[in-house]
Simulated scan of single mutants.
Amino acid sequence: MAEIDFMSVLHKSTQRDYLARVNDPEFPKAKAAELAKKFDFDYWDGDRRICYGGYRYLEGRWEKVARAMAEHYELPAKPKILDIGCGKGFLLYDFLKVIPDAEIYGIDSSSYALANSKDEIRDRLQLGNATALPWPDDHFDLVISINTLHCLPAQELDPALREMERVGKKNKYLCVESYRNEQEKANLLYWQVTCEAFNTPEAWQWWFEHTGFSGDHSFIYFE
């Protein structure tokens, strides 16, 4: 298990006004979170004060992440790749640009995201939950989960980490939100709308050891 940063190149490109998020007169934090946790239109394509404000495919945005992973991990020919919490499938679509013969699979709990996913790969995505993955043991050459598992409460985070470990062979990578100090904790509380697992890196390490998760990881910090 190693901490590998594939994601900061995207995360740090976004400017954030934390206090405005909390105090917005129309969508104050509690209301925004209530809407966002439905993972429906408001979460993906609604007002920016709720969440993404229009989650659209941007040429090359996810390709740099897919390429970095493909270069880091030693994958076989025609690798099977699973994205847990795939959303609209943009990362998986860009994986095919980097590894054209890959077998891609995605699972997400948002029927809205899947209905509005990339047309070209929609048949490779399915509705489901991270706590019960419908694949056999050691099935995938690479399993990834980005900004998903921190949305789960403890009773679901435990089985989700165990499932991720179960279906993957050697290569696994997840990215979750975290904080290293009180300022980052406050910023995370102000900005997030779906996070349930508020853990320091040390606490996340405990979760990995507790569930037997052997994959790599990185953390998103709100500095």
Rank of each mutant, 00 (worst) to 15 (best):
F6Y: 09
V193M: 06
T200D: 00
G215V: 06
F198E: 10
L142F: 04
F213E: 12
Y73K: 11
L125P: 01
H139Q: 13
F39N: 05
G54S: 04
L114K: 03
D94P: 05
F219S: 06
Y43H: 14
L189F: 12
E59F: 06
R16L: 15
D101A: 10
L188P: 04
Y179S: 01
L149K: 02
D158G: 02
N181K: 03
E163P: 14
I104M: 02
Y18F: 15
L82M: 04
F219G: 07
A2L: 13
I50N: 02
Q155F: 11
D94S: 06
H11F: 14
D138G: 12
E3Y: 12
D141C: 09
A186D: 03
L91M: 12
A203T: 06
G60S: 12
P201E: 07
A203Q: 15
Y173G: 10
K37C: 10
M69C: 06
L19K: 13
Y179D: 05
D17N: 15
F95V: 10
W135F: 15
L10G: 05
F95P: 05
T194I: 14
P159F: 06
L188A: 08
M1N: 01
A68G: 09
Y52A: 13
H139I: 04
D138R: 13
Y55V: 00
R21T: 15
I146V: 12
L157E: 14
L125Q: 01
H150F: 12
P25G: 13
A32E: 06
V143Q: 12
S214T: 13
F213N: 14
D94Y: 07
I107R: 08
K29L: 03
A2M: 13
E177T: 12
V65A: 11
E59S: 09
A132Y: 02
K97I: 00
T14E: 11
R124G: 05
W62P: 00
W191P: 00
P76E: 08
E182S: 14
P100Y: 10
D141E: 12
Y105G: 00
S13T: 14
F6P: 01
I144T: 14
V167I: 08
V22A: 10
A130F: 05
M1K: 02
D5W: 13
Q155L: 07
Y55E: 11
L142Q: 03
S109M: 11
D216G: 10
H150K: 07
F95A: 07
E184A: 05
S218I: 00
A102G: 11
Y112W: 09
V176A: 11
Y52E: 06
F222N: 13
